[in-house]
């Protein structure tokens, strides 16, 4: 009898072992796939487990960054009384915060337990800090939609909280054993922050508010994203750098750079504002997916793991 793979006759014995609570629906488990490997390793099998996260996580990296930078932008615009920009920024921040929560819950193994994220405050875990940060940001950005002084005060709080929200996700993935993410631990946060600034500026370009000021911001942010992308490339070496050059992640990384560069060119030459915004958005989104897949590819490569440690 092979019902749940435990070989226990449940009419005779009780399931009370440490693994008894494990729910089994699919018995066949995926075996690790040997990688092409010329060096010393264990049959080329991956040493690390690649991340179990799926598309909601890199999507959240984009949406959370967009929300955070939009809140900061709205707060700055409030100082100047630019009402259109304030409104748009606050709406994107609040909507983005809500969507961020939904994306993060979607990716949990047990969604109904999302509230357990708030059982503890753990400074060693960027994910724990980020949960509290996103929670506070969600409240502040939601309250910033209120009229009058309450909305303004909340808007400034959301703007301040939005700044770390754009970059903590880079710290979160740097704080793993994944070779590419760990080796880029210094260069990745500026890329994510710049990419968030591009996300917000591109959204405003598409909405067409405060065109002159938004264009200034868009040009600076897109240039910063390209430069910090170069810094990321320069911070990786040997086998660890391979995923940024080849495979799915390499193609995504290249596509992201092309989108951002084209969008920068359009913003500088003041042409096709909508397209500039769309390309900037695509570049920022694809950047997150490229880094996500590149990290997974480097985790699969045992030599990349050894190299990081032997260096």
């Amino acid at each position: 009898m092979r019902t749940d793979g435990r070989n226990i006759d449940q009419t005779l014995g009780a399931l009370r072992g440490e693994g008894a609570l494990q729910q089994v629906a699919h018995l066949e488990q995926k075996l690790p796939v040997p990688q092409k490997d010329e060096g010393v390793s264990y049959y080329g099998l991956p040493l690390l487990k690649e991340s179990v996260w799926k598309w909601p996580i890199p999507t959240y990296f984009y949406v959370g960054g967009l929300a955070g930078a939009s809140a900061a932008l709205a707060a700055a615009a409030r100082l100047r009384g630019l009402r259109g920009l304030v409104r748009a920024g606050r709406f994107i921040a609040a909507g983005g915060a809500a969507l961020s929560g939904a994306l993060l819950i979607e990716d949990l193994g047990i969604r109904s337990r999302f509230v357990y994220m708030m059982r503890v405050f753990r400074p060693t875990s960027p994910m724990s800090l980020g949960t509290w940060l996103l929670g506070a940001f969600g409240l502040a950005s939601g309250a910033s939609l209120l009229p009058g002084v309450a909305g303004d005060v909340s808007g400034f709080v959301a703007g301040a909280l939005g700044l770390p929200l754009t970059g903590y996700t880079a710290v979160l993935i740097s704080n793993t054993a994944v070779p590419l993410w760990q080796q880029t631990r210094g260069a990745l946060p500026p890329l994510f922050v710049a990419s968030a600034a591009v996300s917000a500026a591109s959204a405003m370009e598409m909405l067409g508010v405060e065109e002159r000021r938004v264009r200034r911001l868009a040009i600076a942010a897109k240039a910063a994203e390209l430069l910090s992308g170069v810094a990321v490339e320069r911070s990786v070496s040997g086998r660890i750098a391979v995923p940024l050059k080849s495979g799915l992640s390499g193609a995504l990384w290249k596509a992201a750079k092309i989108c951002t560069a084209a969008s920068l060119l359009l913003s500088i030459t003041r042409r096709a504002r909508l397209l500039a915004g769309a390309l900037g958005t695509a570049g920022a989104l694809v950047t997150r997916f490229a880094m996500f897949h590149a990290g997974n590819a480097s985790a699969r490569d045992p030599q990349a793991t050894f190299e990081l440690q032997r260096a």
């Binding site: 930078a69 900061a72 932008l73 700055a76 615009a77 100082l79 100047r80 630019l82 920009l85 960027p126 700044l163 770390p164 754009t166 970059g167 903590y168 880079a170 710290v171 740097s174 704080n175 631990r185 210094g186 260069a187 990745l188 946060p189 500026p190 994510f192 922050v193 710049a194 968030a196 600034a197 405060e210 000021r213 938004v214 200034r216 911001l217 600076a220 942010a221 910063a224």
Partner: peptide
């Protein structure tokens, strides 16, 4: 991870400066 937090802090300050300067 400390290096990563420091780098993020600097980048966040940079973002604040950039947004203020542009807007």
């Amino acid at each position: 991870v400390r290096k990563s937090w420091a780098s993020m802090g600097a980048a966040a300050i940079g973002l604040a400066a950039l947004v203020l300067a542009a807007v």
